[in-house]
Write a protein that binds this DNA or RNA. Structure first.
Lengths: 110, 110
DNA sequence: AAATATAATCGTAATATTGCGATAGATATG
DNA sequence: CATATCTATCGCAATATTACGATTATATTT
């Protein structure tokens, strides 16, 4: 009856926040930009393109992998990273639809 | 000649990461959802809708305000928060265009 | 097998974030 | 003016993030 406090966040809120978190560091955006700009899958080249150490880049790659935005295929001694199309599309959809909610608002205030 | 290390991130990378950071917590997404769902500007109502204390909500509101995504108009003793249309559109554009870069890739790998 | 190259992981330090209660400031109401 | 309401800020604790060097694991050469 009384209690109107939300007990928790919705799945949609959590999902969106998780994608956003993956993109919340310039290094991770830069990594994805490298993957977007090159036709070929890069691996250690990413390290050379960023102002960060190998271990730090590897950590950022791990986070992007956990978020699902990239995948890494073992290619000999090196690893070929690239954007995960499925998850990329999902993230795109989530953001696009969410941002569009504003346009669908009937009455905007202030 | 040799050195190919990026000295720093691009403005675009920083901007995108900053927007993403503002959206990287479920509470902030939830706050924006409240503002998106209500026709009228809410103020302290946001606190009632979230599983967080008043001070914590206030802090999240501050971050959203710093990111520019919302603005707060003083309305008597309370404050009327709403989405900042200009910045919202900017963020939307940034994300949309960036996500679209994938579609514009000539050859996808892996 | 030894040496080399590549990338992940460990350990650690510095910093940032998150959350809350308590307090302060500003505005309304009696 | 006193009180109540609403929101921001302060102080603090717990946790998470970021970054790096050193090490480890795996694969490729020689």
């Amino acid at each position: 009856m009384g209690a109107s406090k939300l007990t928790d966040y919705t799945n949609e809120e959590i999902t969106l926040a998780r994608y956003a978190k993956a993109l919340s560091h310039p290094a991770r955006i830069a990594i994805l930009n490298v993957l977007l700009q090159r036709n070929v899958c890069v691996c250690g080249d990413i390290v050379d393109e960023l102002p960060l150490s190998q271990s730090t880049v590897s950590q950022h790659l791990k986070e992007l992998k956990i978020a699902g935005l990239i995948k890494g295929d073992i290619e000999g001694a090196s690893i070929c990273y690239c954007i995960n199309e499925t998850e990329w599309s999902k993230a795109k959809e989530h953001f696009t639809k969410w941002f569009q909610l504003y346009d669908e608002m009937k009455s905007k205030c202030c």
